[in-house]
């Protein structure tokens, strides 16, 4: 006799909804998204779920499984003991469109505020060891799990003031690029609101690409903002010796 899995899946839209119980057979290698698809195929054809690659690379199938943000296509069902229902909710930070599908368009609006890469004039040569640091940030698949779990956005709803970890990662990738000449320090401090981050590292904990978001992106950006705005010795040095916060 095959075993079964109990699921509680959110059904509803931005006006409200409820957790609905389903039961599906467990199969070897099954992931949470598979179980949702079984529900969709056999019990609830109107169940909305966003997915695409089923390989953990497109970032479409983000949801909250037992309260933790996960890519449902990578979350194996055998992690969860039989006999206990698995709750599957849409990402809390974003408005629900239907069931497990959320409206993440706010992220794209934030992205547009970031000045693009501005390449330096003259010789354009750099080395792999210099590229290593920014290549980590290029692993981001924009699943927005970090945005979802960030308590500044999730609990305090400061979407107007704080850009969120995903975009601090993106701007870190630009700022630390050896050939980029754009200065985004003021943007990071003001429009992106890096000071709202209290570095509690939830973004790092949930990143499916294991990007060290807090240690390698956000804290270095905070230090750069401190160089420019909160370090009196550097301020005096700039006044005496001139120049700006040269990053060379």
């Amino acid at each position: 006799m095959s075993s079964t899995a109990q699921l509680k899946i959110f059904r509803g839209d931005r006006n409200g909804g409820a957790m609905v119980d389903y039961e599906v057979p467990r199969t070897p290698g099954m992931v949470v998204l598979d179980a949702v698809h079984v529900v969709q195929a056999t019990q609830a054809p109107d169940l909305a779920v966003r997915w695409n690659c089923k390989a953990g690379k497109c970032g479409s199938c983000s949801a909250e499984v037992n309260g933790k943000p996960k890519l449902t296509c990578m979350e194996r069902m055998d992690k969860y003991p039989e006999g206990t229902a698995i709750s599957i909710r849409p990402m809390k930070t974003f408005p629900v469109i239907k069931d497990l599908v959320t409206d993440v368009s706010w992220n794209y609006a934030v992205n547009k505020k970031i000045p693009p890469f501005k390449i330096k004039e003259g010789e354009r040569k750099y080395y792999q060891y210099e590229a290593d640091r920014v290549q980590e940030f290029r692993k981001c698949i924009e699943c927005f799990l970090c945005q979802n779990i960030c308590h500044v956005l999730r609990e305090h709803q400061l979407k107007q003031e704080f850009a969120g970890p995903r975009f601090l990662v993106r701007v870190a990738g630009l700022e630390m690029h050896p050939l980029d000449t754009e200065d985004r320090t003021e943007l990071i401090k003001d429009a992106m609101g890096v000071g709202f981050c209290n570095i509690t590292k939830c973004c790092t904990e949930v990143c499916p690409e294991s990007i060290q978001i807090t240690d390698n992106a956000i804290i270095p950006l905070k230090e750069r903002v401190a160089d420019r705005y909160y370090d009196p010795i550097r301020w005096i040095a700039r006044k005496v010796f001139g120049g700006n916060d040269s990053r060379q």
Binding site: H151, V152, R154, G195, F196, N198, T200
Partner: peptide
């Protein structure tokens, strides 16, 4: 900072866990 913001200020107590009600969150501003 991470450790005591979580443990002493419950801001947040853990990832994905509700915080005590408070207004005017400023983070490290």
């Amino acid at each position: 900072r991470k450790a005591y913001y979580r443990a002493f200020f419950l801001d947040p107590p853990a990832c994905g866990v509700g915080e005590p009600r408070r207004n005017n969150y400023l983070g490290e501003r």
